Amino acid sequence: MATDSDDLQGAWRVFIETAARLQTMLDDDLRAGTGMSLADYSVLLILHESEGGRLRMRDLAHRMVFSTSRLSYQVDAMVKRGWLQRERATEDRRGSYAVLTEEGRSAFRSAARDHHQCVDALFFSALRPSDGRELRAVMERLAAHLDTIHPRTQET
């Protein structure tokens, strides 16, 4: 007979393995269809949804759950592709902004159509609406728990 501990251990294993598998499949699909990585797409999505298509680097690192150096490398690669530009923060001269370019907006729009189809095929089509509500509630509870144990820091 399975115990609560067995159920939690089993849930952990399925979660970690399925999350890694899903991210790999999404990344592979994006790379094959658009030449961009899932990390590229995530940066473009966050900036696309941000006011003016711009966000402080520290805030973008926070949203991406990236270290400052990892985000800097990611943004530099995207600047080289013409998808982003960097702007100094004039209000305090300490930080900088990542800014979505028109070329970046176009690349995002193009990738979003195919990416949505892939997400639909790999994720949405396997779940019922009630699964989404339950999964969201569990993940929000887990995120809040993580924030109490290890709050994300705001780096400049």
Rank of each mutant, 00 (worst) to 15 (best):
D92M: 04
R70E: 14
S42G: 10
A98D: 04
E51I: 13
R81W: 00
R105Y: 03
S67I: 04
D92S: 09
S72A: 12
T34M: 14
R31C: 08
A39V: 08
A111Y: 02
R93D: 13
D29V: 05
L55K: 10
H48G: 10
R88I: 14
V79Y: 00
R63F: 10
G104Q: 03
D114Y: 10
A98Y: 01
R56P: 09
D92K: 06
R56K: 15
L84Y: 01
L30M: 03
V65E: 15
R63W: 08
A112C: 13
A89W: 07
T68D: 15
G35V: 00
R81S: 05
R94D: 09
M36F: 09
R109E: 13
V79P: 00
G35H: 02
R105E: 08
S72D: 13
Q85P: 04
E91I: 10
E103T: 09
M25S: 15
S96K: 13
D92C: 07
A32S: 14
R93I: 10
D114V: 15
A107G: 03
R109V: 07
I46C: 10
I46P: 07
V75M: 03
D76H: 10
L38P: 05
T101N: 01
D29H: 13
A89D: 15
A39H: 10
E103Y: 08
R93E: 13
R88G: 09
R109S: 12
V99H: 04
A89N: 15
G104A: 07
K80W: 00
M78R: 02
F108L: 03
A89R: 14
D28A: 10
Y73V: 04
S67F: 06
S42C: 09
D29A: 14
G52W: 01
E49A: 13
A112N: 11
G35W: 02
V75H: 00
S106Q: 14
E87I: 06
R54C: 07
S37Q: 02
D92N: 12
D114I: 11
H62E: 15
D27P: 01
Y97N: 06
R81L: 03
R93G: 09
D92A: 06
L84F: 02
L55G: 04
G82A: 01
D59S: 11
D27A: 00
S110Q: 11
L71E: 03
R81K: 10
V79L: 00
D28W: 09
L47S: 05
R105L: 05
A32W: 06
R81C: 01
A111S: 06
T101D: 01
M78W: 00
S106V: 06
L26C: 05
R113A: 11
T101V: 01
D40C: 04
E87T: 07
V43R: 05
L84G: 02
Y73I: 06
Y73S: 08
L30D: 02
L71A: 05
L60D: 02
D92Y: 06
V99D: 06
R94N: 11
S50Y: 05
G104L: 02
E91N: 15
D27E: 02
L100K: 04
S110V: 07
V99K: 08
S69Y: 11
R81E: 01
S106G: 11
L38K: 08
G104T: 02
G35R: 01
R58M: 08
S50F: 03
S69H: 09
M57E: 11
G35S: 03
A32Q: 15
Y73R: 10
E102L: 12
M25E: 15
T68Q: 11
M57V: 13
V79H: 00
T34K: 11
R113N: 09
F108Q: 02
S69G: 08
M57R: 11
